[in-house]
Amino acid sequence: MSKSAEKSRKKEVKQSLIPIYIMGKKHEVPDSLTIQKALEYAGYQLVRGCGCRGGICGACGTVYRFPNSYRIEVGLSCQTVVEPNMYIAQLPFFPGNKATYDLDTLTATGSTLAALYPEMYKCIGCGTCTRSCPMDIDVMEYISRAIRGDIAGTAEASFDCVMCGLCAARCPAELVQYNIAILARRLYARHIAPPAKHLAAAVQNTRKGVFEEGVKKLKKMGTEELKKVYTGRITEPDIADEFWEPEDMTYLVSEKTR
């Protein structure tokens, strides 16, 4: 692996070229490229429409169509490989309405969603959003769960959303689905999922300085001594269950006694 993907591709000459249409204009590009790399091959230096290059930031929502097809296809340009005769347009930005709120004071109910995003009820159940989602999320389903006030269900069904905006761009009822979804996820995690008790305890123990002495001791050690302690430390076995505790409980606070 001595060449970066991007650089090596520029040098390969003998790959087969296929025609694609970038905003209607024809370009010949190698058939192994993603749409994103094909745009670069065609000569564009991307500023918008390119973030992570790894399918997770949602910057590169793209729509395309083949000649003689009524279907609008969608994809993330960094993840979708070019095909002959694609007509491509990127959608690097689509204005979306985001409510502002103080999560602490909200309740995890359908009426919270309804108050912040009343347009939710305009959904006509057309399913366009689901067909537009490059992450294969059943968007209409999470919206109907939101309408039913099922916060946990909305949170779970929308978890993979990369907030690319393609659903919102095509929604006839003008919803901004991904913003409703993130509100539901935050409500769920903050107010429905039980808080982690061990975490609260760890915050308290650590703040109280229970482990301070141990850490200070390590800090004072010379490298050789530290190496010895490091090498001698016990590793929690892979197969250990949640409540495994080592024999040596120094610098630990047993959860069993609590």
């Binding site: 973030g51 992570c52 790894g54 997770i56 930031c57 910057a59 982690a196 061990h198 975490l199 305890a201 760890a202 123990n205 650590t206 229970v210 482990f211 141990g214 850490v215 390590l218 800090k219 530290l226 302690v229 490091y230 430390r233 929690e236 409540f243 495994w244 505790e245 080592p246 610098y251 630990l252 606070v253 047993s254 959860e255 069993k256």
Partner: peptide, 29 residues
């Protein structure tokens, strides 16, 4: 905002939150 390496992290985030077996001492080591 968010087009960043942070967005791409997959695996996880470390913190000694289970004091029955873990603490800043072991995390430090």
């Amino acid at each position: 905002i968010g087009d960043a390496n942070t967005m791409m992290a997959e695996g996880g985030i470390q913190a000694a939150t289970k004091n029955g077996k873990d603490s800043p001492y072991y995390h430090y080591l």
